[in-house]
Nucleic acid binder design. Structure first.
Lengths: 155, 155
DNA sequence: TGCGAATACTTGTCTTGACAAGTATTTCCG
DNA sequence: CGGAAATACTTGTCAAGACAAGTATTCGCA
């Protein structure tokens, strides 16, 4: 694993961070292309599914589920509302909050997307053992932890 | 810099894909914040470094190095040119192409950024063995392979 | 030779992501 | 109680990524 301190970092042995970002980018691109026939992006699909699973909560509670911040969720909901898949209702408990709910059209596509997502996820694991997946997950969680620590050091 | 959009949400185990995307996102955010004092983003820093290492090539050759497409590089170069770090020259060998070169100001920041990047990369590996890093890299490469296969299946 | 295909880059549009600032509402506490 | 602080969301701005389409130039080859 490359003692690549300050070295060129050739394309064939990229740093772990770079590799993670490459995988992330290609995952999104693939997902977006597969969802294009439904007229949705990956983020939009995630939000629709999150609304199905955790609906009735305000967008604040959904931000962590779709990997963006509140502002991002707000505009994501704008787009989904424009597509008629989701609706904002005033929340009875807290008038600052607006609860999300799926429209009939929204419910109509959830199952299909979830199935599709599962298939893709399955395909991405092909040829990789459960142990390797688990170990990878573990490493990535530790990296996340290190990122959080570094972020605190900066702040 | 204030309320970090970052950490919450360990909750239950997310899918590997989601985890990769989360790591990617937080990596970029951290890098962008650390580079902010230099007035650069992570992508801009990467392109300046790539120009230093592989300069004199047209942007076509740099796209794979900065994880975006030609259009992205084109606009990235626009921004760096506006900041006076990089310059486009007509390529003598091929008049379609425009060779990139660092300006003195560009060269002046390269060393600092590379050192900084190495430090951060080091910090992200803390507490993770070289073997684990290698195994993780291996798994991610196989995932990349699966993505490519799935992409071909779609196309 | 010359013409169509390929190549290098640019530009337009849409979506996302981060951050800052703004509004409305609720909570906390003196 | 009353006002300060926190909270929930929205909006504005900039940078990126993907994709499509456009321009200029070079290449391949009949």
């Amino acid at each position: 694993m490359a003692a690549r301190a300050v070295l060129p970092e050739p394309a064939h042995a990229p740093g772990l961070g770079r590799l993670v970002m490459q995988v992330s980018r290609e995952l999104r691109t693939l997902a977006d292309r597969q969802l294009a026939p439904l007229g949705l992006t990956m983020q939009q699909a995630e939000l629709v599914i999150a609304t199905f699973l955790h609906g009735e909560k305000g967008s604040r509670h959904l931000t962590s589920l779709v990997l963006t911040d509140e502002a991002g969720v707000s505009r994501l909901v704008d787009r989904l509302e424009a597509k008629g898949l989701v609706r904002r209702r005033p929340s009875p408990r807290d008038r600052r909050s607006r609860a999300l709910e799926l429209t009939p059209a929204g419910r109509a596509v959830v199952a299909r997307m979830r199935r599709r997502r599962a298939v893709v996820d399955q395909r991405l694991r092909e040829g990789i053992s459960a142990d390797d997946i688990a170990a990878t997950r573990d490493v990535l969680l530790r990296v996340l932890d290190n990122i959080a620590r570094a972020a605190r050091a900066v702040a």
